[in-house]
């Protein structure tokens, strides 16, 4: 698997898409810093990019890579390599190079502006960690979708649907639910529902650094426990990791059952 990973990384790092992706983050982040010295403002803009664009690009890119390397995959399938290693290796290659572009693109400006040593380092680390985890989660989801759908159009359609659902619609439904049942105690539901969406989860992870003062305004016991201590941070991270593993496990399973 290491070799597959090595080669797909090698392949991807040279692809101009990765270069664009890296360049985009670099210019965007530099632009933000240049426009506004206000660190929280930069953080909020980057948060939006991380929550919307990173999942979208990871999904699209994962699909593109998977479909484009179908023949290459077949070549590998004929080699004496266990099947799941091929897909896991390719997946790690895609997720890894997306993460790398993202980390460098956003990280270099951070270092450049001396944030690594500032008091906001926790916030920026959280942003970077969320971006990386979302890259992994959504390229995993896209690999799974691609494995399950040989028809590219269907695959892309489905992936966009999943992205729309998780990035935007989910919160709409959640809000509707909350507003509709606002007479009931909802804190468990509200927190629980957020666990089922990795984008919401990453957002909460960032909020814990960015808006803790506002979050502390709610004393439901569960909220307080979740937000007030490190518990929220730990639980969010664990569930996010679970979200990374879930597509991984599904990819393995689907790859073992698929005809090529």
């Amino acid at each position: 698997m290491n070799k597959i990973l090595k080669y797909s990384l090698y392949d991807l790092v040279r692809s101009r898409w990765m270069f664009f992706y890296f360049g985009f983050f670099l210019l965007f982040t530099l632009g933000l810093f240049w426009l506004s010295p206000d660190i929280s403002k930069v953080a909020i803009s980057m948060m939006n990019i991380i929550l919307i664009l990173v999942p979208l690009i990871a999904t699209m890119f994962g699909l593109m890579y998977f479909y484009n390397s179908r023949e290459f995959t077949e070549l590998l399938l004929a080699q004496p390599i266990p099947r799941q290693h091929i897909f896991l290796g390719q997946y790690l290659g895609v997720a890894g190079s997306l993460s790398l572009s993202f980390l460098l693109g956003m990280g270099i400006p951070f270092l450049f502006y001396g944030l690594a040593t500032s008091s906001d380092v926790g916030l920026f680390l959280t942003l970077l960690v969320s971006g990386v985890l979302l890259s992994f989660i959504f390229s995993g989801i896209s690999f799974y979708i691609a494995l399950k759908n040989d028809n590219r159009i269907r695959g892309f359609g489905l992936a966009i649907l999943v992205w729309l659902l998780l990035a935007v619609a989910y919160d709409g439904f959640l809000l509707l639910g909350l507003a509709h049942f606002s007479d009931y105690p909802l804190e468990k539901y509200a927190l629980g529902a957020s666990l089922f969406n990795p984008i919401d989860l990453s957002r909460i992870l960032i909020l814990l650094k960015l808006d803790i003062a506002a979050l502390m305004g709610f004393t439901g016991a569960v909220f307080k426990k979740f937000l007030g201590s490190n518990l929220g941070m730990i639980v969010s991270l664990i569930v996010l990791l679970f979200w990374v593993l879930l597509p991984l496990w599904s990819i393995r399973r689907a790859s073992l059952r698929k005809d090529f």
């Binding site: 957002r203 808006d211 506002a214």
Partner: peptide, 16 residues
Amino acid sequence: QTPESIVLLRSPFVGL
């Protein structure tokens, strides 16, 4: 109105 909706703080949907 619904304090629990704070979990949606800074959600892109809320931005819309």
